[in-house]
Nucleic acid binder design. Structure first.
Lengths: 154, 154
DNA sequence: TATTGTTATACTCTATAACTATA
DNA sequence: TATAGTTATAGAGTATAACAATA
């Protein structure tokens, strides 16, 4: 067996290695904006469905409700997320982004775009398209939900 | 801007998403053998350079020496790694794999190969080769060391 | 009685620092 | 005095369970 056929040089290993690297680089970038990757995900989910409850976030994220409390707290304190008691069911909070968060989302978009360009810097435009296509095939085949990445928890 | 051009659908995001998935699946597989991914990495490093010290492992892994103590302990207790006091410098341990570990390494190889096939199941042979090539370009461009993936710690 | 969210508690992981043995 | 490894301690992160308010 040649060196290049060992599993350590295969696509799955490279995906895990590069994926970890990409996630770390992204964490550094959003860290400059004062956010963790998990917080970015939370802001995205609230932006996509304003008014949703903490319970629904917990379900989608696969974490326990008390965890969401702990994750929303700092976003609330820093004025990015607003908890509004639901008038229909006063047990619920309706979560909304503040105007301050709206401005931040623009910067996050720029950050994510720069990150994409950075990770793909070694590829020309055509290679980048081909890589993206192949990755989409793999993601679909593995049953991954577009736009959602659960981190390394399982 | 079309949906497909948002960073969430770009190669970097897909790499992080699929990478996390691949790492989790790998963790499940090696978990069936009673090992964590970190332990697999440790066994590999000792197999590659028998007799190396805990200190050198700590340096390569970018962790603190006390961490290596904690990681080697269960491998020692389960009879996979042997600590031999160095005769040249009795402060050092020389780490070696036991025969029991040797047999396990064979199973690990099979596990890693099955994992590769699983992750790439959505691709035909040619696509798989192309993906691997593109990933190697990205890995090299990002300065990643072949065969070493540091996990998500940074 | 069931549900949303919070708080209190415990467990896990990891790093820092003090310590032992050796050089 | 410096180095290899261990142990003790503390901090972050996360889950479980008990709790308050509402339905």
């Amino acid at each position: 067996m040649t060196e290049s056929r060992k599993p350590l040089n295969g696509a799955a290993f490279l995906l895990a290695q590069i994926g970890a690297h990409a996630a770390n680089r992204f964490a550094e970038r959003v860290g400059d904006l004062g956010l963790s990757p998990a917080e970015v995900g939370l802001l995205r989910m609230i932006a996509a469905q304003p008014g949703r409850s903490q319970r629904s976030l917990a379900a989608d994220l696969g974490v326990v409700p008390s965890r969401v409390t702990a994750m929303i707290d700092p976003l609330d304190r820093s004025g990015l997320v607003e908890r509004r008691r639901s008038t229909e069911d006063r047990r619920n909070y309706e979560l909304h982004l503040t105007p301050k968060a709206g401005a931040l989302m623009g910067r996050l978009f720029e950050t994510a775009t720069a990150h994409e360009d950075d990770i793909c810097a070694g590829l020309d435009a055509e290679q980048r398209v081909r890589l993206t296509e192949l990755l989409r095939v793999v993601a679909a085949n593995q049953g991954l939900t577009p736009g959602v990445h659960p981190g390394y928890r399982g």
